Amino acid sequence: MLIHPWDAARDAAEWQQWLAVHDFGQLAVNGLPGEPPFVQPMHFAYAPSAGGEFGGVVAHLARPNPVWPALDANPGVLLSVVDDYAFVPGPWQALPGAPAEHGTPTSVYTAVQLRCTAHVVDDPEEKSALLNRQVGHFQPPGLSATVAVGEAPYGRMLSGIRGLRLEVTGVRAKFKYAGHKPEEVQDRIAAGLTERGGPGDAAALAGQRRRRQEA
């Protein structure tokens, strides 16, 4: 992923705060010899480490999932999350004084890629703790029972899943919102997103406004 200086995260807090509320991504795993990479869409829960920069991710997948042999062969993975995206028509990007039709179409978006070492969790007690952490991230208290080994309703399901703990070893974050363009162009993009109001436009507009305010 190419990251220009004007698209880069300003600090770790920026991508960590974004990732805290964007918790569905694609886990890319190296394929077995002769096979292409394996890509698994999944929900996950991310948390920064105490006093550290990268932190870690927890998730779980069904035991029959074909990802496990590939992880056994190579635990180096990439978790990719892309959101707050929108298409920007060329005229919105035309430079001041230039014909509208000379503008270059583009995309705006946020992308965070976590390079990780995967650790498979099979111990029932450890899986229970992992699941409780993940469910606690997504559901308000009181909406589901606690996961506990041998106890209803989830204890009997533990054998059907495997837990994943991803140790984050590197991060690449990109906030692509035309931050290097003249103010007039950025204003035009914002106005266009507001007027069009299509799927994703509000989130992309919020991302652009936040980056401009924090510049």
Rank of each mutant, 00 (worst) to 15 (best):
H60A: 09
S49E: 15
W68A: 04
W68L: 06
N65T: 11
A62D: 13
H43P: 14
G55S: 09
F38C: 14
V57E: 01
E53P: 08
Q40I: 14
W68I: 10
N65W: 02
P66E: 05
P66I: 08
S49Y: 02
V57Q: 01
F44T: 00
P48K: 02
R63H: 06
V58M: 03
P48L: 07
G52C: 08
R63P: 01
A47D: 10
A62G: 14
G51Y: 09
G51S: 11
L61N: 03
P41V: 11
S49M: 07
F44H: 03
P66L: 08
H43Q: 10
N65C: 12
G51E: 09
A59S: 10
V67F: 01
P48R: 01
G56S: 14
P48H: 09
M42I: 11
V57S: 03
P64F: 05
G55Q: 04
F44S: 01
P41L: 08
N65R: 01
Y46P: 11
Y46W: 14
P41T: 11
P66V: 10
N65A: 13
G56F: 06
A50K: 08
F44K: 00
A47G: 12
P41M: 06
H43L: 11
M42N: 05
F38H: 15
Y46N: 02
P48I: 08
V57L: 05
E53Y: 06
Y46C: 03
G52R: 11
P66K: 05
F38E: 04
W68K: 04
A47I: 03
G52I: 07
Y46I: 02
G52Y: 06
N65V: 03
V58D: 00
A62Q: 09
N65P: 04
G52A: 11
S49L: 08
P64H: 07
A62N: 08
V39K: 08
A62C: 04
L61R: 02
P48Y: 06
A50S: 13
P37C: 14
F54E: 11
Q40S: 14
P48Q: 08
P66W: 01
G51L: 07
M42V: 10
P37Q: 12
R63K: 09
A59V: 00
A59G: 01
Y46D: 01
P41Y: 08
P64R: 05
A47T: 15
W68F: 13
W68N: 04
G52K: 05
V39G: 10
V57I: 15
A50C: 06
F54H: 15
R63W: 03
P41K: 06
A45N: 04
G55N: 06
G52W: 06
H60Q: 09
Y46V: 02
Q40P: 00
G52V: 08
A50E: 14
L61S: 10
E53T: 15
S49V: 10
A62K: 01
F54P: 04
V58N: 00
S49C: 12
A62H: 07
G55F: 06
A59R: 00
Q40L: 15
G51T: 12
G56A: 14
A62S: 13
G56T: 08
H60I: 07
P64A: 09
A59N: 00
P41Q: 09
S49A: 15
F44I: 02
P64E: 08
H43G: 15
Q40H: 12
H60M: 06
G56C: 05
F38L: 15
P64V: 10
P48T: 12
S49G: 15
